[in-house]
Design a protein around this nucleic acid. Structure first.
Length: 1145
RNA sequence: GCGCGCGUAGCUCAGUUGGUUAGAGCGCCACCCUGAUAAGGUGGAAGUCCCUGGUUCGAGUCCAGGCGCGCGCACCA
């Protein structure tokens, strides 16, 4: 007996039962133990941060991350899955600040770095529970208990090792650069972080006059017009840049006739338009004429009064170090005035100008002018606005310029500007700052070469998004002037400024004269619950100092910075094992990864950080002394991952980005509770290729259920119902159930080899095994979308053809076993369906692990107990049995299915319902299928049965019903005939098809005369012969042929049709009365119609057997249900009642 | 601005090296089945394959230029 099955699946409940089973039996662990020692399939978990709630996108990632490890495990490989959590960084700090109601660095310092860090460490686990629940709920098998955690000491020390390596190789350096700076947060951000914060804003756009100076240093009547959208940078102005080969003009505006202005010629008119005034051009000259001219800066905070001070150049001349026109290539006429205000402190390009200028000077070089403090306020060097946040001063600055008549024009300018990605009201500014960088740009080519070897899916990521990103690589801005992160392990000599990197905590403790460890010890004593991992974090680590190796008596102090948390995640391939300090075996065997997958936003994130770190540390140029694992492929590429599925972004119900505030998506738990994890997983896998953006809509998820899961469930439920009725037991006498593969099943009682079974069974098994082939091929190529579709087609074939065509066998009398009253054909049907169901469940297991497990438990573990795998996930993925695959039969069965379908179409067209028997159906096969004619005729019974007709034949006179058209096979003739093709085409159109076909038959070729007088000889293979139904017949055509239905209805046929109508009504009535389908009934009819009465009498026998009637009378029964029917216009009253108690079948 | 992706039926999406009649699911309409049954099936209607131009005997598919959407990048001073 199989456990009875719910008619309607309740997936969430089933899933909960299965999950409990897995847990109590430790199935995941067993699935690993099962494969220990086998070839490894290496998977890396990109660490999510448990600092926020999981959302639907995470369900997708986790589903994909589960699919391939499950599949590979079933394929015999050993796939460890170690979870991981990303725990450092700004997101955590910002969350904590929010909860404390503070914002700035000063406030954090005031609160205290130590308690702040404690808060951060606690906050990291805030949504841990939700994450773990979700992970299990979607069926993502991963070892959460051994998860790596980026703040753990061993992890931090691995990162330290990596940083020390880079430092020792000169690849980690401190540079003074213009960085994107978050003033309120007091730290620089990486380009990736900056990129996340761009937002469209309206900034003031000002056109400012820079009056040119005369020889004595006094302002003249003539001014340059510079344009900027950041007025706050004007006090720090240092140069004005022009383009040498651009034409500039001196002009006078009608509304301002006293002064003259200089700007690029192509932009002059548009500025006049903006000012709503007219313009008078006084003279024009090339930009080169302006180079070297001196001007009065808009603010005098740095400029002493009087004549510009001259400084010696290397060339022997001398020039002022500031407020001078210089030439620059980057000046364009796209916008502005063609004169660019240069403030080197606040722009990378501007800073480049300064560096270039500095090279020209002899001894004293131009200083960097900067009147903005790191916190974003003006310094005392700009007294009028000192202490105010620069972005808040734009209005006052503009007003000031206007009052001094230096403001030529002002407007609003709409553009994208970066804000802090974690504090989105804080604008970022470009700012000069000493910061630590990794020389990634030096490894650009190595990274590109490494990238070249990675199998990206979709392919275009390699050359496109990711390749471009690598090609434009800039040095990694690594350091963060923050608190909660991996501390930069660099200690600096207080006297000499010389630095060294420390690769491990132990190494630090063994330094001479080390002190400061007591700070953590004391904290631990005060708070025993404090995590030991915090000893390597701020502020404790900062307390540790030691004797300088560079100068006697000096001490070494750690630099204050922590690092970008993306470096943490990128170090995960080795840091998850604490390598190289520990975990050498693990790293050896788990690197590089065979498979990773994340969403596309990780191109600049985890995909990059992994590749960059791996290339720098383990690439061919590496001089790292600790060697990478011996498993490294010979040429060293690709690493650290070979195959990467880049997932599309998930969109909300409305197709736009998911957003909490827009409420355009349902919480994952709601979907999971309502439809189940398998439904969600199947939707993800089968809905679209994974790299498409995917719409997370409840409707779409709901509607994806019937097509596959429900259909499969219905077949399963059908099987269980009838197998129980018929006593089908697969375990009877089976010697070795194995994995219930075809060959194992062969040892069972009542099992006949496929070759001895009906064609339908052989077809079904052929489809099953062909599908297994397709799926393995697709999944090996990481194409689960194609695999899912193949699986779905298989289920359609089982449900809509095999079960449908096998009903008679399932309902035939006799037991489904090898006993004396056993029925061999019935047995075959059960064995076939049993094999199909168990094998399909295994094929589906990586996709829908819960439902397939439910099948396995009932179909396999139920009858066999401990003789089969206790879980479907401990079985092997089905390997196709090549001997069972049969392409000819597949084609033929497809043909017969089309014939049946066309027959129904023809009936529908002629309004002849299937209940009405017809005399004959004729088929005209397309030329392409003519060889299957004999086979089709041998299946006449099947066609007749499907279409409810008396006879089936291949049409003897096809010309009655069809016309044939000869079309050129363009694919074949195109390359051969080229430009002649259209002529051949029209010639064939005009030619008589029958003549051509005769010619093909008789001579193998036919000659076609073209309009240009030439002849072309073509063979039948060059053509496609199309068959088209003529009008006037009940016919339907498809690609494989034409089906014609005889629409003539004889009185006999009509009578039979009427009886079938009555049978239909009786069956409905049985159902209405809620009778068991084994209940016998008595029938009584009353009708005025002689015709109907005769029909019923004539077919009383079939009427009785179809409806399980023990008696049929032509008078109404006492105490029976009455129903009045209309059969073809004849009134009939039917009475029906149960004949006896139901008896078991 | 540059780069990547996408644009096919009312909706969500397939569409293999260019080839004759462009498909699926859902929805809609009509019908069938009634021993999987609050399921299942069949048929039908429905398309300017975003636009324009080009290459080609032939373009949904290749090329160029637009338009729209999404994402990414960033010296918009």
């Amino acid at each position: 007996m199989f456990q009875p099955v719910r008619g309607r699946p309740d997936l969430p409940t089933t899933e909960a039962e299965i999950a409990a089973l897995w847990k109590s039996a430790g199935i995941y662990q067993k699935s690993l133990d099962n494969r220990r020692g086998a070839k490894r399939f290496v998977f890396f978990e990109g660490p999510p941060t448990a600092n926020g709630m999981p959302h639907p996108g995470h369900c997708l990632t986790r589903a994909i991350k589960d699919l391939y490890p499950r599949y590979r495990t079933m394929r015999g490989e050993f796939c460890e899955r170690k979870a991981g959590w990303d725990t450092h960084g700004l997101p955590v700090e910002v969350e904590v600040c929010k909860s404390l109601g503070i914002h700035s660095k000063a406030e954090i310092e005031e609160y205290g770095v130590e308690p702040f860090i404690h808060r951060c460490q606690e906050s990291v686990w805030r949504y841990m529970k939700e994450w773990e629940t979700l992970t299990e709920r979607v069926g993502f098998w991963i070892d959460l208990s051994k998860a790596y955690v980026t703040y753990h000491q061993s992890y931090v020390e691995s990162v330290w090792w990596a940083l020390a390596e880079l430092f020792n190789r000169g690849l980690l350096y401190q540079g003074h650069k213009i960085v994107w700076w978050w003033p309120q947060g007091g730290t620089a951000l990486s380009s990736g972080e900056v990129g996340q914060g761009y937002r469209q804003v309206a900034d003031p756009s000002v056109y400012v006059a820079f009056p040119l100076l005369d020889a004595s240093g006094s302002p003249t009547n003539r001014s340059l017009i510079a344009w900027t959208t950041t007025p706050w940078t004007l006090p720090s102005n240092q140069f004005a840049a022009i383009k040498a080969d651009l034409t500039y003009v001196a002009v006078r505006f009608e509304d301002d006739p006293e002064r003259e202005y200089i700007l690029a010629e192509p932009l002059a008119a548009s500025l006049a338009d903006k000012k709503k005034t007219t313009i008078e051009v006084l003279e024009s000259f090339p930009g080169s004429d302006l180079v070297g001219a001196c001007y009065l800066p808009p603010f005098d905070c740095f400029r002493p009064p009087g004549q510009p001070e001259l400084t010696a150049l290397k060339s022997g001349d001398d020039e002022p170090t500031a407020w001078r026109v210089i030439e620059a290539d980057f000046v364009t006429t796209d916008s502005g005035t063609g004169i660019v205000h240069i403030a080197p402190a606040f722009g990378e390009v501007d800073y480049g100008v300064l560096l270039a200028e500095r090279k020209r000077f002899e001894n004293k070089v131009p200083p960097l002018l900067n009147c903005v403090a790191p916190d974003g306020t003006f310094t005392d060097e700009f007294p009028t606005m000192a202490g105010r946040f620069v972005k808040d001063c734009d209005r006052d600055l503009t007003r000031d310029l206007r009052s001094r008549e230096l403001l030529v024009h002002q407007e609003q300018y709409l553009h994208d500007y970066p804000f802090c990605w974690r504090a989105d009201n804080d604008p970022l500014i470009q700012y000069p700052r000493a910061s630590w960088f990794i020389r990634t740009s030096q490894f650009r080519d190595a990274m590109l070469a490494n990238n070249e070897q990675i199998n990206w899916m979709p392919e275009h990521i390699k050359e496109g998004r990711f390749g471009n990103f690598l090609a434009n690589n800039v040095d990694w801005a690594l350091s963060r002037e923050r608190y909660w992160g991996t501390p930069l392990p660099i200690w600096v000599c207080e006297e000499t400024g010389k630095a060294e990197a420390v690769p491990a905590y132990e190494a630090l403790l063994s330094k001479p004269g080390v002190t400061g460890t007591e700070v953590f010890e004391k904290a631990k004593a005060d708070h025993p619950e404090l995590s030991d991992d915090l000893r390597v974090h701020k502020p404790y680590i900062d307390a540790i100092t030691y004797d300088s190796p560079f100068q006697d008596g000096a001490r070494m102090y750690r630099v204050p910075e922590v690092i970008d948390c993306w470096f943490d995640s990128g170090a995960m391939p080795f840091a998850q094992w604490g390598w190289p300090h520990t975990g050498s075996d693990e790293f050896q065997s788990q690197w590089p990864a065979d498979f990773i997958s994340e969403a596309i936003d990780q191109t600049r994130g985890w995909f990059y950080s992994q590749l960059a770190i791996s290339t720098l540390l383990f690439g061919p140029e590496s001089s790292t002394e600790v060697k990478p694992p011996a498993t490294m492929p010979p040429n060293g590429y690709p690493h650290p991952f070979r195959n990467c599925i880049v997932l599309g972004h998930m969109l909300g119900e409305d197709g736009s980005k998911m957003s909490k505030s827009k409420r355009n998506y349902k919480e994952p738990t709601e979907i999971l509770d309502r439809y189940g994890a398998d439904a969600l997983r199947w939707y993800f896998f089968a809905g679209q290729p994974p790299w498409n953006s995917i719409r997370y809509s409840e409707r779409a998820i709901r509607e994806s259920v019937p097509e596959f899961l429900l259909r499969l469930w219905n077949v399963y439920s059908f099987f269980v119902i009838y197998a129980n009725i018929d006593g089908f037991n697969p375990a009877t006498h089976m010697k070795n159930p194995g994995q219930l593969d075809h060959k194992n099943l062969g040892t069972a009682d009542g099992f006949r080899p496929a070759s001895e079974r009906s064609e339908l069974d052989r077809w079904m098994l052929a489809e099953l095994h062909a599908t297994a082939n397709t799926m393995v091929e697709a999944l090996d190529a990481y194409d689960h979308y194609v695999a899912a579709r193949a699986l779905s087609d298989l289920v359609d074939a089982v449900s809509n053809w095999f079960v449908r065509r096998s009903r008679d066998r399932f309902w035939a009398s006799g037991r489904a076993d090898a006993s004396a009253d056993g029925n061999a054909e019935k047995c075959d049907a059960y064995w076939t369906l049993y094999e199909v169901l168990t094998t399909t469940a295994r094929l589906a297991a990586p996709f829908v692990p819960f439902v397939s497990e439910a099948f396995w438990q009932n179909l396999a573990v139920g009858p066999f107990g401990g003789r089969v795998s206790e879980s479907i996930h401990l079985t092997d993925y089905p390997a196709a049995d090549a001997e069972l695959i049969n392409p000819d039969l597949a084609r033929q069965m497809a043909l017969i299915r089309e014939v049946a379908s066309l027959g129904r179409a023809a009936r529908a067209q002629a309004k002849l319902k299937v209940r009405q028997p017809l005399s004959k159906v004729e088929v005209i096969l397309a030329e392409s299928h003519k060889n299957d004619a004999d086979w089709l005729v041998s299946h006449a019974d099947l066609v007749c049965n499907e279409l409810n007709v008396k006879a089936f034949e291949i049409c003897a006179e096809p010309e009655r019903y069809i016309t044939r058209t000869i079309l050129p096979d363009l694919k074949k003739l195109g390359p051969r005939l080229g430009k002649k093709l259209p002529q051949v085409r029209s010639a064939l159109q005009q030619a008589d098809a029958t003549t051509l076909i005769t010619a093909f038959r008789d001579h193998g070729v036919a000659t076609v005369s073209l309009d240009d007088g030439t002849d072309v000889s073509i063979s039948e293979e060059d053509c496609i012969i199309r068959t088209t139904a003529r009008d006037g017949w009940a016919a339907a055509e498809g690609t494989r042929g034409v089906v014609v239905i005889s629409s003539e209805i004889t009185p006999e046929l009509l009578a039979e049709g009427q009886v079938r109508e009555v049978i239909h009504a009786v069956q409905s009535q049985r159902k209405t009365l809620d009778l068991e389908f084994t209940d016998r009934i008595k029938l009584g009819f009353a009708t005025e119609s002689e015709e109907l009465r005769k029909a019923l009498q004539a077919h009383a026998e079939s009427l009785a057997s179809e409806t399980l009637a023990v008696s049929i009378e032509f008078e109404l029964l006492q105490n029976a249900e009455l129903e009045t029917l209309d059969i073809d216009g004849h009134a009939l009253t039917m009475s029906l009642k149960r004949a006896s108690q139901s008896k078991a079948s």
